[in-house]
Nucleic acid binder design. Sequence first.
DNA 1: GTCTATACATCGATAGAC
DNA 2: GTCTATCGATGTATAGAC
Lengths: 188, 188
Amino acid sequence: MARREEKVAEIVGHAWELARSQGFQGLSLRALATRVGMRQPSLYEYFASKDALYDAMFADANRQLLARLEALSLPADPRRALKSFFGTFTQFALEDDVRGQLMFLRPIPGFVPTPESYSWAQDVLGRAVDLLVAAGVTDPGDIDCFVAMVAGLITAQSSNEPGGDRWTRHLDRMIDLHLDDAQPRSTT
Amino acid sequence: MARREEKVAEIVGHAWELARSQGFQGLSLRALATRVGMRQPSLYEYFASKDALYDAMFADANRQLLARLEALSLPADPRRALKSFFGTFTQFALEDDVRGQLMFLRPIPGFVPTPESYSWAQDVLGRAVDLLVAAGVTDPGDIDCFVAMVAGLITAQSSNEPGGDRWTRHLDRMIDLHLDDAQPRSTT
DNA sequence: GTCTATACATCGATAGAC
DNA sequence: GTCTATCGATGTATAGAC
């Protein structure tokens, strides 16, 4: 019976709406229950704790991102593929503030994703690493720097000028910069 | 009479200790008052609200950083000066988790520094920009990318491997990469 | 300037009837 | 599975005696 899963998905959807309008701070079980149309204790029928709700949201966000990335038809050229992949990644991270925060920062004190939920995030990272290797970035240090660079642009954009492109417009140029830098060392 | 300032500084010091051991979440006025040796309502003699306490901590952290940076005797060579400056900056940001979070992230929902406190942070950024310009990085976009790169390394290090150097060890190399990239365009 | 006492709100979570 | 009722804790902030 999928009735339960549907209800869980519905609750998570309302939780996102609430978090978007009030922040994670305003995401109380009472407010959530009211929005869903039930009483606060009834939520415990679907989530054993508030952290379990957060965990479901975290997994949901990462599944969304994975679906978005899998829907891409990547160019054969590794460099263009990387730009498409991380361009989509960046757009996804920035188009929804609270979702991006939950995925990439730690906006909720004390909450740590379960390994099950975190595996979705690792899946995304794995695809990124595959593309980087295909583009000639094989050194682990170079991969770390590349990922940190993208995260740096996203974080700066999100916290200083949400909705703008002051930082993200440099993404392709920064990708080229990192690829050119890593290339000589990998092709020996 | 500086009695009052001394007491304020003492309270802020205890607040840092408490935040370090319990996180910002555990920084309650009750716990802080207990640690200081007074009752919770007495704190209102020194801070009009809890946000005022946060603001004092924010200003304190930025003043600490500014003092650390001003104590540096920077090399004459702009490139070496940049590495010294941002190396110190990075070390400062990472040597105290909660302090770095308060300065560079938004760990406290709803708290926004007052303009007076924020001016200290702008002072730090101003010095960084001066050094970048002296090193030939004059394009605002290049400056944005450079700052985002440093922040990206710090954030990755802090959130994935606090205490280590998996990301920060690439700082000098990344600085060279960005400087070499910006140079041709600035010297025409 | 520090205290006691307390107001007042909000929260997550549980017990138990239905 | 949903409800009412409530527990127990925490939080900021204020009133007023001393």
